[in-house]
Design a protein around this nucleic acid. Structure first.
Lengths: 259, 259
DNA sequence: AACATCAAGTTGACGGTGTCAATCTGAGCT
DNA sequence: AGCTCAGATTGACACCGTCAACTTGATGTT
């Protein structure tokens, strides 16, 4: 079964196997598209090593899976940043962050589900350094997950500074996170549901939560009430004026196709 | 191990065990808080029967788990309806639907996760009758999941009829679903994250997505653009007028504490 | 009341899983 | 050349979901 003879690792170089194991696990994960295809035996065989050897480098199976997820999530921050590069308008940055967040989730469905759609990954992000030894991943795991949130929070703060939002950046960001995460989660959980075109769905959700953030952060309605009839007329007037000023060219030109 | 002697079931009455199995599985699920505590052996022992007997009533383990989830989700529709009973304002109904949806998810964490936070439960809700034989649950599973969505969609349509929203009800409802589901999913996935008070978090998210729905459904900005500076002033003016009219008592009185 | 029927339930086993204690082995230092 | 101990293996354990073959007993019929 084992193909390569595999020269044994030297004294200090034991960590080499760790990387190979990580890679093999990741391959199995994306190939099969489900985490229960990632068997310690399958991983070990692919690397060309016996099963219990995995335990020399990972505390247990869940630690291995966590490490795999972590590896994928490292890209997200950079991806989001790249999607918003050169964009000055913080509101537009927010939209692009959201869009690339969703795209990332759909591109890495298994990792996303493992990290953010399972029970009780540890949390309290205080002081968690990414100095991950591939064993105490549980702490670093949450750091990776909240890194995206931090990025969103920062841009939200910029929106506040620009006078577009009001209130606490973190609070607004958490709700926007819920919206984008909800999109990803639903799309992943119900792939056969008759969704509208994904891009439209995501964009509509982003505009709703974004506009909502702008408006709600200025309305000091008591928590727990919506108001109703008044709003209809008010929204109409606002929408009309926004459209008018928009067509007058007072804002950023529409960006190129967000591919 | 088996406590009761268990009189054998009669000819046509084989379905009696099915219910007991279902109940035992549900108990194990909520007691342990995780689905992998629900072992066919554990379930069988709790009922007082041997393991393979389960297969006489459920196709396999996943069918059993699906049936358990289904049982829990049956309540949701009624819960949502009850939460909005006697409320005339469709916008307020929407808020209460959302709040009770989230509350339901947090109250049934395991069932919620199993049904809406795992991979690829079947879909295409067309014509799926809830005439569930406890075996072909996969179809009825999705019916239960989308029942809540349908309820939201209907009230969204009422909001459209009332002139509060514009556009396609289903599309708006899907985005609002993403927001509330996102709240539930995040709260369940990261219980140790330093969340703000849950009620505030949920209410804020609901107001954001609700206001956003009202506003965005009237702004025909090209998809993929947000606009920016203009909005700030516009939002200020809108918020001020909304607050003024609100304090003039033009809308529904604030509801009692939504407990 | 005796009997045959066949759904309801059991027995025993298979292959697969994560995990671990005990053991071997060989690369690198002395 | 030989020691050392990190690196890797052996063999086993307990548990899992699942199934084919078997037993049992409540029921409808005679």
């Amino acid at each position: 079964m084992t193909s390569k003879p595999r020269t044994r690792a030297g004294r200090g170089e034991g960590g080499r196997l760790a990387e190979e194991i990580l890679l093999a696990a990741e391959q199995l994960l994306v190939e099969a598209g489900t985490e229960d295809a990632v068997t310690l035996r399958a991983v070990a065989e692919r690397v060309g090593v016996t099963t219990p050897s995995v335990y020399l480098h990972f505390a247990d199976k869940s630690a291995l899976l966590a490490a795999v997820c972590l590896k994928g999530w490292a890209e997200l921050g950079a991806t989001m940043a790249a999607a918003a590069e050169g964009v000055a308008d913080p509101f537009e940055v927010l939209r692009r962050y959201g869009a690339s967040y969703v795209r990332f989730g759909l591109d890495h469905p298994v990792q996303y589900r493992l990290l953010l759609m399972t029970r009780a990954s540890a949390a309290v992000p205080a002081g968690g350094q990414p100095g991950v030894t591939a064993t105490d991943v549980t702490a670093a795991e949450v750091v990776a997950a909240t890194a995206a949130l931090d990025q969103i929070t920062q841009v939200t703060q910029l929106c506040i500074d620009a006078g577009l939002f009001r209130g606490e950046a973190q609070a607004l960001a958490l709700s926007m996170w819920a919206a984008v995460h909800g999109c990803v989660s639903l799309l992943l959980s119900m792939p056969r549901f008759p969704w509208p075109p994904i891009e439209e769905y995501v964009d509509r959700t982003l505009r709703m939560i974004g506009f909502g953030a702008g408006l709600i952060s200025r309305v000091d309605a008591p928590a727990g009430t919506f108001g109703s009839e008044v709003m209809a007329a008010e929204f109409d007037a606002t929408a009309a004026r926004l459209a008018a000023r928009r067509s007058a060219g007072a804002v950023d030109p529409p960006p190129a196709d967000p591919g």
